[in-house]
Amino acid sequence: MSFLKFASVACVALTLGACASVFQPNYRAPLETKREAFEHLKPGCDNQDCPLVNIDVVHFPDEPGLDAAIDKRLREMTVNTPDARVPATLKAYEDQFMREAQPRYSSYLQAKVREQHDGIVVVELSSYAMTGGAHGMPGRGFINWSRREHRELTLQDMLVPGQERAFWQAAEEAHRGWLVASKLDKDADFIRQWPFQQTPNIALTYGGVVLKYNVYSIAPYAMGHPEVKIAYPRLNGVIKPELFPGRG
């Protein structure tokens, strides 16, 4: 091969490599989002006790799979009794709620972006249903969405194989730190009544792995939704290294 021909082939290779680099997704740039928010009162009602449904959702035009995951999780969060079925759509849920609602009943559903970093989108989900009684019942959840894999990451996806026990040991240590920070570590009655529990609500935030608890889980209703944070250095060898901020 002549020098000129070799140089030409090398230039083409370099150009293709540069193009491949240019067309890689920029995971440092946040995904575009669009918000959809509305509040509907029960048709025909015109007083201050009208039942209502309030929905506030974020959409991701470039990640339709994440949109679908959010829709599914919000519909699941409307199920408050053992015999209830997951509604086919949020509109179907609203219609059913309005048909059965009594004065002062209300339902709130929200999905918002908590963080975007390192190709991970953390969506926080919230629900609240007032259907009689002294107060309504709130719910919380997270979706950890991998932009690289276009799917939700479960806890098993996050963990190094065989490290689930180590993860929950780290979580229990972090819970003890939460008790100290909340000035509850000396309250023997509180510790006995509200012991540490596992939670499905786990978020890969930039500052640490966050565990969020529903009301009545590790604290009374008045304390809302406690958050326990595990620092990433404590999870070396437990969480997959590529999921640590800055390593992906």
Score class of each variant (00 low, 15 high):
C19R: 08
R176K: 14
P226F: 08
L184E: 05
Q169H: 06
Q169T: 13
T154S: 15
F190D: 03
H40K: 10
R148H: 05
V209Y: 00
L109M: 00
Y93F: 15
R104Y: 02
S21Y: 14
L125Y: 03
P220D: 13
P245V: 08
G136V: 08
P43F: 05
G133E: 02
S126C: 04
Y108A: 00
A134L: 08
N80D: 13
A69R: 04
P30V: 01
Q193T: 02
V53T: 09
A20D: 07
R234E: 12
A10T: 11
P82G: 05
W194G: 00
P64D: 05
E164T: 00
D56Q: 02
N54P: 05
K91P: 07
F3K: 08
E164M: 00
D118V: 01
H40W: 09
D118C: 09
E39T: 13
A222G: 15
A134R: 07
G44W: 06
A111Y: 02
T81R: 15
D83A: 09
A101R: 12
G17Q: 07
F23N: 11
P87D: 03
P161N: 00
E100H: 11
Y27L: 12
P51N: 06
E227W: 02
Q110E: 00
G141E: 14
F97G: 06
Y206W: 15
M223K: 14
D118R: 05
N47Q: 10
L14D: 02
Q110F: 04
I239H: 08
G132F: 03
F190S: 01
E63D: 08
V113F: 15
Y216R: 07
M223N: 10
W145K: 12
L159D: 02
S126Y: 14
M77E: 00
F167Y: 05
Q156H: 11
R176V: 03
D187H: 04
Y216H: 10
P245G: 09
S182K: 09
F6A: 11
D62Q: 13
G65C: 13
L90D: 00
R151E: 10
P138V: 13
N144K: 14
D189L: 14
M158R: 00
S217K: 14
P220F: 05
V215C: 11
H150T: 08
T199Q: 01
S21L: 15
R114G: 08
A129E: 15
Y216P: 02
E39V: 14
L4N: 06
T78P: 04
E149I: 03
H150R: 12
M77S: 01
D187W: 07
A84T: 10
T81D: 14
F196N: 03
L204R: 09
L16M: 10
R35I: 13
P25S: 11
A68C: 10
Y93K: 11
P245K: 05
S106Q: 07
T78S: 10
M223D: 11
L159M: 01
R247W: 04
A10N: 06
V9Q: 15
G119K: 10
M98K: 04
E76G: 09
